[in-house]
Design a protein around this nucleic acid. Structure first.
Lengths: 200, 200
DNA sequence: GACGTTTCTTGAACGTGTTCAAGTCCCGGA
DNA sequence: TCCGGGACTTGAACACGTTCAAGAAACGTC
């Protein structure tokens, strides 16, 4: 119903009617309308993993693995682009249980981070040990950035988001490789300690 | 009223009553409740500029200027942290006129970007010509990131956000300096062309 | 089968943002 | 002074998300 009518026009009364129950009963199973989206959220996480699986099984290079997972994420989200705005609207609020940073959605978040951990672990990339530990979370954060761009992407078929992925992946790949360079070591360490400070 | 009661509890009826008019009349002057926030938005922009002015007049180094402007931004926003979540909630929706990327809020956005242009222009920093042109917008984007972090920052007095600024500014400063390095030239150009591709 | 308790279900009712037909005010021109 | 049209103002009405007291069903225990 979300996909067909959008978020606003999918009323709780309509949802209840479609389910063949009374309005109030919907609130027995879901705390609020927002919580209906959370179901959605968890579903796309699983699908993301499934769609990304073949690429992760096939590719060994860091760049193609990362690109594969990012593209898979956008692939899964694609059908919902029209109402993803409202999705994002509620997710952006810190107090919302839907926020990707909230404790309530820590399960799907961990699953998503694990996906990026796999991207790195299964690759042949060589990098700083400390960076290796932190990078998956950073990649996930970058993925959140991609989604944020995608939500605002008005280009037909969200081509720009694809360009973003294809453009940023080799850059990240390059930077990860450079991180072991002597000139950049101090910057790398500086960045990593900052990240550790800011993590809650 | 927003500050005292928060966004949700500031009803349009209460706003109208406080203004001494009927409910419907509020909608003659403001298209929606969200548009009340936009007024707020424009106001803080002006204040940001005012608070940042002394620092920009005093400092000449790129790092202290950037840090000053970023801290000024957080200073101005500070009193509204409790309800900034809802603020952000509506701003995150792409279709919302409140979105910092929307055409409707292009005026305050331009003003904000100009502030970061001033950060760079008034500094003694030496950097790649093309980067010099693009950097202000990137700094603004980074500022949006700082605000995003600030909104989610639950630490007392939002200390973490201050640490983020103090940690990230020298990093940016260092990277900007390194951008002229021979080893990093290709990466810099690669990043810049990507950015130009993605800009609408 | 009868009971008490928990789980589930109902739909009216509340407060909200928003709309709109109707009305009032204001001001320039005949 | 009157008229006409635009600017402003009103508050009832609408649809929505959400709550809640009341009831129905299911279940375990004797």
């Amino acid at each position: 119903m979300f996909r067909e009518r959008g978020y606003a026009r999918t009323t709780m009364r309509a949802v209840a009617q479609e389910a063949g129950v009374a309005v109030g009963n919907a609130y027995y199973y879901f705390d609020s309308k927002e919580h209906l989206i959370q179901e959605f959220y968890a579903e796309t996480q699983h699908e993301h993993r499934a769609v990304a699986a073949p690429v992760l099984a096939r590719e060994r290079g860091f760049a193609p693995r990362l690109a594969g997972v990012l593209h898979a994420g956008v692939d899964v989200l694609s059908p919902y682009h029209s109402f993803a705005g409202t999705f994002f609207k509620t997710a952006a609020e810190p107090t919302s249980p839907l926020s990707p940073f909230s404790t309530e959605s820590s399960a799907p978040r961990e699953a998503s981070v694990a996906l990026f951990r796999e991207v790195l672990a299964g690759s042949t990339a060589k990098l700083d040990d400390e960076l290796r530990e932190t990078l998956p979370e950073l990649l996930w954060l970058g993925y959140m950035g991609v989604v944020l761009y995608w939500v605002h992407d008005r280009s037909p078929g969200q081509v720009k988001t694809r360009q973003l992925i294809d453009g940023v992946v080799p850059l990240v790949d390059r930077l990860v490789g450079l991180s072991r360079l002597r000139v950049l070591r101090p910057v790398t360490r500086q960045a990593l300690t900052l990240i550790h400070t800011l993590r809650h």
